[in-house]
Amino acid sequence: MSTPYRQDMPPAGGFEAIKYKRNLPFRGPGGVVILAGVTAISAFGFYRMGKGNLEQRELQREKVWSRLHLVPLLVAEGDRDAYRREQAAVARESEIMKDVKDWEAGKSVYNDSRYRPSNTIVVL
């Protein structure tokens, strides 16, 4: 059995055109645009950082002044306590040294009127 002869022919309507031209679709903005965008964003960031640094300086000033306003109050309270403990120490010392003639309790070892805080909290 033999098949009938058939000539191989192009598809109906002919072959499609050969693609030989460059095919480069648009793939986002160009280099100059990206560079300009990055520069703009960075510039804004630096501007805001500068502003933030100035603001931080003011926040620091606020914090320092809020503490400065409290210094007299806290020092006054501490002074009262220090005075109370000093007086108690002097009383203890004079009680211990009452038999020693010419002993002055709480007298500084230096011959001047300058105040020096006690080196010991309590001598037990």
């Binding site: 007299p72 006054a76 009262r80 005075y83 000093e86």
Partner: peptide, 15 residues
């Protein structure tokens, strides 16, 4: 004067 005894009166006023 740094002596605690020196400024007790002023300290009370502050408190």
């Amino acid at each position: 004067n740094r002596d605690p005894a020196h400024c007790l009166k002023e300290g009370r006023r502050v408190t």
